[in-house]
Amino acid sequence: METFEDIGAARSQRVWGTAGGFLAVAFAAAGALGAVQQAAGVPAEVIQLAQFGPAAGVAALALVQRDRVARLVRGAGRSGAGRSGAGRSGAGRSGAGRSGAGRGAALLATAPLITVLAILAYLLVQGGTADGWFTRPGSLEHSFALIVVAQLVGACAEELGWRCLLQPLLRTRFGVLASSVAVGVLWGLWHVPVFAQRPQYAAAFLAATVAMSVVLGLALEGTGGARRLLLAGGFHTLVNLGMLLFLDEESGAVLPMVCFGSACLLAALPWVMRTPSGAGSAAATLHRT
Rank of each mutant, 00 (worst) to 15 (best):
R14H: 15
A91M: 15
H236P: 01
V153P: 06
G77P: 01
A62L: 13
A253S: 12
S180P: 07
P112L: 09
P276E: 04
R98W: 15
F4Q: 12
A204Q: 00
A105I: 15
S99I: 14
F4L: 14
H142K: 10
R103V: 12
Q37A: 10
R288Y: 11
R171N: 10
Q51T: 06
G82P: 08
G233R: 07
Y201P: 05
A105V: 15
L247K: 04
P256I: 10
V215P: 04
V64Y: 12
A182Q: 01
A106L: 15
A204M: 00
N240F: 05
A253T: 07
V69M: 09
R74A: 14
A208N: 07
M1G: 15
R71P: 03
A208W: 10
Q200T: 14
R163V: 04
V239W: 03
P193C: 01
V181H: 03
T115N: 01
R198F: 09
G104M: 07
L269N: 08
R11D: 11
R227T: 14
S79D: 12
L160Q: 08
Q13T: 14
A39D: 05
L244N: 07
G17S: 08
G184N: 01
A150T: 06
L140I: 03
R228C: 06
G154F: 06
G252Q: 09
A118G: 00
R227H: 10
A283F: 06
G184T: 00
A208L: 07
A40M: 09
P256L: 11
A96T: 15
Q65D: 15
L165G: 07
A39F: 02
Q200N: 11
G100W: 13
G20E: 01
L186Y: 03
G278I: 03
Q13Y: 11
S213T: 02
Y201F: 12
L186P: 05
T115I: 01
Q38H: 05
I119S: 01
A283E: 12
G75N: 02
Q126D: 13
T129E: 12
G87H: 13
G20R: 06
L286S: 08
R88I: 11
R71N: 13
P256E: 09
G82L: 11
E221F: 04
G278D: 01
T223Y: 11
R173L: 10
A70R: 14
A76S: 10
C164W: 05
A91I: 15
G234S: 00
A111G: 10
A81D: 14
F144W: 06
R288A: 13
G217Y: 02
A106C: 15
P270K: 02
D248L: 08
Q13P: 05
L218A: 04
L189K: 02
I119H: 02
M273C: 13
A76V: 13
H191D: 00
G161Y: 08
G95T: 14
R83D: 12
L230C: 12
L238Y: 02
G41T: 11
L113I: 04
A44N: 10
I147D: 09
L124I: 12
